[in-house]
Design a protein around this nucleic acid. Structure first.
Lengths: 151, 151
DNA sequence: GTAGCTGCAAACAATTTGCACACCG
DNA sequence: CGGTGTGCAAATTGTTTGCAGCTAC
């Protein structure tokens, strides 16, 4: 087999390390407590005086998502939001096996939740209907304590 | 108060009845076994030689959704899909209280499912995190018996 | 008669892609 | 060097909106 990857340093362990890629990763880490759209990340980068092309942001996000280093949530309005997922630190972005989210509709803050019961339920219901090759999305939207009632 | 609405006849009971509105309703009824995007509905209408403007389709769908006569599912790719919901017959489109869907990724056929356990779980988890004013989406995508493996 | 539809095209917003150039390894 | 990553702008796609004319009530 070909050479192993040397101990990585950042999220993009197995990819070419570039200034913009790193900037995106860094931002993602800082904002890891909530979901953000590609656009808002792009904006944040600009705000930090580390402008990165919007297309590049999308490309990078897609790449991270492909390696499952990102959680992707499609909001009720159809816009996609991303958030760093699993073990943020460490050598390699290790994706968590499976989990869902509780997202604040106002500020985007997120709580990761898992529910074995739901997994089981989903599988059981689907099987019973003869469905296979399953996938499921479970997202809970609400207003976190801080924003209950008013922004 | 002004006069009550006479016993409605179609889905659009309290709206002006028009040829195109009726056509959309009819199509929706015929295709009530699966979710369809606005675009595909528009296509189906044209196929039936009852062309309706795409904008009108969207407007009508939005209206029906507002009255909760439609189920709306946002597919993993962000496109919205609609399907007639609840009691299709009868005077007024009575929305079902709450339920979720099992959708075939290939043909779009749908099975309505409900899971009290999930509802309870969602509420419990959210409450515990201090969230209020909840909403949740639970969709299961898979391949129905007929399409398992290959289209 | 009038307000709510409809159609069509233009406007929009999110995301993707083509292509020339930059730069990591 | 060689190929991957980047930028920018143009292209796509799903959905909304403005406006003149039509029509159900």
């Amino acid at each position: 087999m070909t050479a192993e990857h040397p101990p990585g340093t950042s999220l993009a362990a197995r990819h070419r390390v570039t200034r913009q890629g790193a900037a995106i990763d860094a931002t993602l880490i800082d904002l890891a407590d909530a979901f953000h759209t590609a656009q808002s990340i792009h904006g944040e980068l600009r705000r930090r005086s580390q402008p990165v092309g919007l297309a590049t942001v999308y490309r990078h996000l897609r790449k991270l998502a492909a390696v499952e280093a990102l959680d992707v949530v499609i909001q009720p309005d159809g816009e996609a939001a991303y958030r760093l997922c699993g073990t943020t630190s460490g050598t390699e972005a290790t994706a968590k096996p499976h989990h869902h989210h509780l997202v604040c509709r106002i500020c985007g803050s997120t709580v990761e939740v898992d529910g074995p019961e739901v997994e089981v339920w989903a599988r059981r219901v689907a099987r019973k209907a003869g469905f296979s090759n399953l996938t499921h999305t479970v997202e809970i939207f609400g207003e976190c304590e801080r924003h209950a009632g008013r922004p």
